[in-house]
Amino acid sequence: MTQPLLEVKGLTKHFTSKQGLFRKEKVVRAVDGVDLVIYPGETVSIVGESGCGKSTTGRCILRLIEPTDGQVLFEGKDIRRLSGEELRKARRDMQLVFQDPFASLNPRKSVGQILEDPLIVHGIGTPAERRNKVEEMIEIVGLSKQQLDRFPHEFSGGQRQRIGIARALILRPKLIVADEPVSALDVSIQAQILNLMQDLQKEFSLTYLFISHDLSVVRHISDRVAVMYLGKVVEVADKKKLYEQPTHPYTQALLSAVPVPDPHHTAQRIILEGDMPSPANPPSGCTFHPRCRHCMDICKTTAPAWKERADGHLVSCHLE
Rank of each mutant, 00 (worst) to 15 (best):
S83M: 06
L175S: 06
G70L: 08
S17L: 13
S110Q: 13
S256E: 00
G231V: 01
V44H: 12
K13N: 12
V227W: 03
F15K: 02
A267F: 00
V97K: 07
F288H: 05
L175G: 05
L206F: 06
A30F: 04
R63Q: 14
Q159W: 00
Q252C: 04
R131M: 13
T266E: 14
I140K: 13
V121L: 14
K239I: 03
H213K: 07
K300Q: 14
K9Y: 02
H294N: 10
W306S: 10
D35L: 06
P282M: 07
V260F: 03
K239M: 08
V315Q: 10
V234P: 04
R293A: 13
L148R: 09
G274Y: 01
L87Q: 11
Q113K: 13
S222F: 02
L64K: 06
P304S: 00
I38T: 00
P40F: 03
P181G: 11
L196W: 07
T2N: 15
I189Q: 10
F288L: 05
Q113V: 12
S212K: 03
M137L: 05
I163L: 06
P101W: 02
E25Y: 08
E320Y: 13
D238W: 01
V218A: 12
E320F: 15
S55I: 00
P101G: 04
E85I: 08
L62F: 09
E273T: 12
L87A: 12
